[in-house]
Nucleic acid binder design. Sequence first.
DNA 1: GAGGGCGGTTACCTCCTGGATACCGAGACC
DNA 2: GGTCTCGGTATCCAGGAGGTAACCGCCCTC
Lengths: 123, 123
Amino acid sequence: MTHRQPLPADLFDELCPSALVPFRFGDKWAALIIRCLEDGPRRFSELRVPLHRVTPKVLTQSLRGLERSGLVLRTVHDGPKPKVEYALTPLGRSMLEPLEAACVWAAEHWDELLDAQERHTAS
Amino acid sequence: MTHRQPLPADLFDELCPSALVPFRFGDKWAALIIRCLEDGPRRFSELRVPLHRVTPKVLTQSLRGLERSGLVLRTVHDGPKPKVEYALTPLGRSMLEPLEAACVWAAEHWDELLDAQERHTAS
DNA sequence: GAGGGCGGTTACCTCCTGGATACCGAGACC
DNA sequence: GGTCTCGGTATCCAGGAGGTAACCGCCCTC
């Protein structure tokens, strides 16, 4: 091994972006929700279908979190029938690219990941 | 809005890779650790420097988790002095690409993210 | 034989996420 | 009046992630 750079003294210095690296960005369901919104705005009850394992409370929590981060916009349409729509903001939409890259990686290495898990639980 | 695809009925059907999408992959420090290893193997005490806000217990936990996932290899070099090295496996190294994409995204939109946070805490 | 660096481990505790379950008000529909 | 859908809340609770602090054996050097 040739002479390498020593590691930086403090990865947390200042507001180092790497501390907010989107791996581990958002809560447990954030990525799935964002992918549900990529085709356009969706209603709450529309999101509940593919995410039926997520209770409404948790779904609301996640959506509020994404709203707080500026990734999702919540719009209440006044009218006779209640109608609430969630849509990606431009910022949220810009996230689709790295998110897609991460999904592709996961899909490609799915088998290896499972193998590693099994090999460890076996031993 | 033109006619869109309805959302899939169940995002959790089978072993859908999107459920393991690397956003939210690993624990709190996984991404930072992986980036510390991209230049080659590092020793435990070497990692402790940039990650000095992570206690040894948690660092060990994270490293064990990454080892379990097959992303990191732990090697004990027998010899007069104790020497343990952590290195990325090929699988771990392949993860650098999407991780880098995520970091670039975060760096580019850092200001927007902070703005959104502040705007929300203010209101 | 005292001390120090290495690579951790152990015990304990706290907080927060996420889950289960039940319930709610407004409007439309019957 | 009763009931349905929509878009959530309220309440309670368990598990686990993560933090604190102390300790450990081994080997080396002084």
